[in-house]
Amino acid sequence: MNKPGALPPPDTALVKQAIDWLIKLQNNKENAAVIAACTAWRQADPQHELAWQRVSLIHGEIRQGLHALPDSAQAANVLQTTLQRTQKRRSLKLLTLAVLAGSSTLIGREITPWQQWMADYSTDIGERRSFTLADGSVLFLNTDSAVDIRFDEIRRLIVLNKGEIMVSSGPDAHSSHKRPLCVQTRDVLLEAIGTRFVVRLENDATLLSMQQGKVAMTPSAFHSPQEIAETGQHFRIHQDHLNLVQMPIEADGWTQGALVVQDMRLADFIAEVARYRPGYIKCDPSVAELRLSGVFQLDDTDKLLSLLPRRLPVAIHYKTRWWVSVGRRASI
């Protein structure tokens, strides 16, 4: 409840307008007419000024940590991931999209936060959640993931838009006939055959890891019969082909809050850790080929990183809390 005399929070429409003005000023810093128009908008109503202050505050806090980042792509990642993790009001999440899309240094970067915020189920960076669906299936979402659920009379469809999930298929007991349970990504349609499996969407492929049972795989550009994945197998699936692969990571370890690896390249390990923390983390090429095995807890990635120098000849450097580098330990 607001204190007596206090202004209520600005509504979403005013937040959008404040974001629009912020972008206009960023792209027209020397334009007196734009500056005057923005000032007039702020002065027209106390709620306008409140919306402006809310948006400017968050934007300013983020920008303080960006000046040291080496390029605009990394700055974009910090903006998107930090806002995504720290903002609680749905309206203020608009700032991520607006800043990324409107800033002249970041134009051209693929922007997808709306897809995540509007998804049926989603997680923030570092968050993991599980849900029981209407058919009795259990759906686990890993860090920074988003899915849509499309159940109808014909089939049970889970659409993975971003990130990683594990599916444990349910009996569909309330349906008059057994509907197939499917997972769809950009690359493939997967049909479960009484099973438990992990699906991860990467930039150029979909990873399928079988925990139990079988899954029929139909890559989106295939014109050939389905192929079957069985327990213990891992596949990297592209739109026009798929490959059986080996993985140095336990595919479902994250469902228990752990990163379980076996003889994994340090560069690949750091890339995995980066999925669970906001900002930018770099592995120096001089230590990229070092190998690592073990079980690492995901709930505190700073603590996780602090363990690395005990196992490998590396040092962890924090330039800001959002920019971390892993390099070779200096000789004594």
Rank of each mutant, 00 (worst) to 15 (best):
I228G: 04
I228R: 10
E230M: 12
E230I: 13
E230S: 15
E230N: 11
T231W: 04
G232C: 02
Q233L: 07
H234F: 14
H234M: 05
F235Q: 01
R236E: 13
Q239Y: 09
L242M: 14
L242N: 11
N243A: 14
L244S: 14
V245A: 07
V245E: 14
V245G: 04
V245M: 12
Q246C: 05
M247V: 15
M247F: 04
P248L: 02
P248R: 02
I249H: 00
E250Y: 08
D252M: 01
W254D: 00
W254E: 00
W254C: 02
T255S: 12
T255C: 06
T255G: 10
A258F: 06
A258W: 06
V261M: 03
V261H: 02
D263F: 01
L266H: 11
A267Y: 00
A267I: 10
I270N: 08
A271L: 11
A271T: 15
A271E: 15
E272P: 04
V273S: 04
A274W: 00
Y276Q: 10
G279K: 08
I281W: 01
C283N: 05
P285Y: 12
P285E: 13
P285S: 12
P285D: 14
S286Y: 00
S286M: 11
E289V: 05
E289R: 13
R291M: 13
L292T: 08
L292P: 10
S293T: 14
S293C: 09
G294Q: 06
G294F: 09
Q297L: 13
L298F: 04
L298E: 02
D300S: 08
D300Q: 06
T301K: 07
K303W: 06
K303N: 12
S306A: 15
S306I: 01
R310C: 07
L312M: 10
